[in-house]
Simulated scan of single mutants.
Amino acid sequence: MKTGVMPVGHLSESQMRSVLLAATAPPPLRRGRPWRFQCTPDAVELYADSLSTGTDSDQRERMLDCGAALLNLRLAIKAQSSHADTRLFPTADRPDLLAVVRPNGYETIAPVDRELVAAIAGRQSNRRPFTAAVVPDAVRRQLRRAAEVERAWLATITDDQVPQLRDIMHRTELPPATPGPGGGSDLDIEPGRLVVVIGSLHDTALGRLQAGQALQRVLLTAAAAGLSAALSSQVMAVPAARRELRQLLGGGLWPQVMLRLGHGTAVASPTQTQLEDVVISDEHPFGR
Rank of each mutant, 00 (worst) to 15 (best):
G9N: 11
M1G: 03
A25F: 03
A25G: 05
Q15H: 07
L21E: 09
M16G: 02
G32C: 03
M1T: 06
M16I: 15
R30Q: 13
V8G: 02
L11G: 09
G9L: 06
M16E: 11
S12T: 15
A23C: 12
T24S: 15
L21H: 08
E13P: 08
L20G: 02
A25E: 04
T24G: 04
V8K: 13
V19S: 03
L21T: 14
V8S: 08
S18Y: 01
V5P: 07
Q15A: 14
R17V: 11
R17K: 15
A22M: 14
M16F: 10
G4E: 07
K2L: 08
L11F: 02
A23M: 01
M16V: 05
A23G: 00
P27F: 00
R31G: 03
K2H: 11
V8C: 09
R31T: 05
L21I: 11
S12W: 12
P7G: 08
P26F: 00
L20M: 10
K2W: 01
P27Y: 06
S12H: 13
R33A: 11
P26S: 10
R17G: 02
T3P: 09
S18C: 07
G32F: 08
P7E: 06
P27W: 01
A23P: 07
G9F: 03
P26V: 05
V19W: 05
G4A: 15
G9C: 03
H10W: 04
K2Y: 05
P27Q: 02
G4V: 08
T3F: 00
L29T: 06
R33K: 00
E13R: 12
A22G: 15
V8I: 04
L21P: 00
S14H: 14
G9D: 06
H10S: 15
P27M: 03
P28C: 00
L11D: 03
Q15N: 13
P7K: 04
S12Q: 10
P28I: 03
R17W: 10
S18I: 10
A23T: 05
Q15Y: 09
H10P: 09
A23Y: 14
E13D: 14
R30C: 12
L21D: 01
P27S: 14
R17A: 11
A23Q: 10
L21Y: 12
R31A: 11
V5F: 09
T3K: 11
P28Y: 07
M16P: 13
T24W: 00
T3H: 05
T3A: 13
E13V: 11
S18G: 13
R30P: 00
